[in-house]
Simulated scan of single mutants.
Amino acid sequence: MHIDMADVTGARLPLFLLFLSFVVTFLLTRLITRLIRAGRGPFKDNVRGGVHIHHAVPGIIATVGGAFVSVAVDGASPGAEISAVLIGIGTSLVLDEFALILHLEDVYWTREGQLSVQVVSLTIAALGLSVLGINPLQQDDDDTVSLGPVVLSVNLPITVVALLLCVAKGKYSTAAIGAFIAPVAWVGAIRLARPRSRWARKRYSPEKLASASERAKKFDARYGSWGLDVEDLVAGRPTGTDRAVTGPDQDTA
Rank of each mutant, 00 (worst) to 15 (best):
residue 218 K to R: 07
residue 179 A to V: 03
residue 163 L to H: 04
residue 179 A to T: 02
residue 7 D to M: 15
residue 232 D to R: 05
residue 225 S to Y: 04
residue 51 V to M: 15
residue 37 R to P: 01
residue 189 A to I: 01
residue 160 V to T: 13
residue 239 T to G: 14
residue 111 R to V: 09
residue 88 G to A: 04
residue 135 N to D: 15
residue 82 I to N: 07
residue 13 L to W: 07
residue 25 T to N: 05
residue 163 L to Q: 02
residue 159 T to Y: 04
residue 41 G to L: 08
residue 60 I to Y: 05
residue 13 L to Q: 08
residue 250 Q to C: 03
residue 143 D to L: 05
residue 191 R to W: 03
residue 29 T to Y: 09
residue 104 L to Y: 09
residue 168 A to Y: 09
residue 235 A to I: 07
residue 97 E to S: 12
residue 239 T to Q: 15
residue 250 Q to D: 02
residue 241 T to M: 15
residue 117 V to F: 05
residue 192 L to V: 05
residue 174 T to Y: 00
residue 44 K to G: 13
residue 121 S to M: 11
residue 165 L to H: 00
residue 144 T to Q: 10
residue 54 H to L: 11
residue 252 T to Q: 07
residue 182 A to W: 05
residue 6 A to F: 12
residue 89 I to Y: 15
residue 249 D to L: 04
residue 234 V to L: 15
residue 245 V to F: 05
residue 191 R to G: 06
residue 26 F to L: 02
residue 12 R to P: 09
residue 227 G to N: 01
residue 134 I to S: 14
residue 73 V to S: 14
residue 69 V to L: 14
residue 3 I to T: 05
residue 245 V to G: 07
residue 117 V to E: 09
residue 161 V to A: 15
residue 253 A to K: 10
residue 65 G to W: 03
residue 110 T to D: 08
residue 59 G to M: 02
residue 39 G to F: 11
residue 189 A to R: 01
residue 133 G to P: 00
residue 226 W to G: 04
residue 239 T to R: 03
residue 30 R to S: 09
residue 227 G to F: 02
residue 48 R to I: 13
residue 221 A to E: 01
residue 208 K to W: 15
residue 75 G to S: 11
residue 146 S to M: 12
residue 188 G to W: 00
residue 62 A to H: 02
residue 164 L to W: 14
residue 127 L to F: 12
residue 57 V to P: 08
residue 184 V to L: 00
residue 202 K to I: 14
residue 46 N to T: 08
residue 23 V to Y: 00
residue 25 T to W: 04
residue 224 G to I: 00
residue 201 R to P: 02
residue 36 I to Y: 04
residue 171 K to I: 06
residue 19 F to D: 06
residue 77 S to D: 11
residue 48 R to P: 01
residue 220 D to N: 10
residue 56 A to H: 05
residue 82 I to G: 15
residue 157 P to N: 10
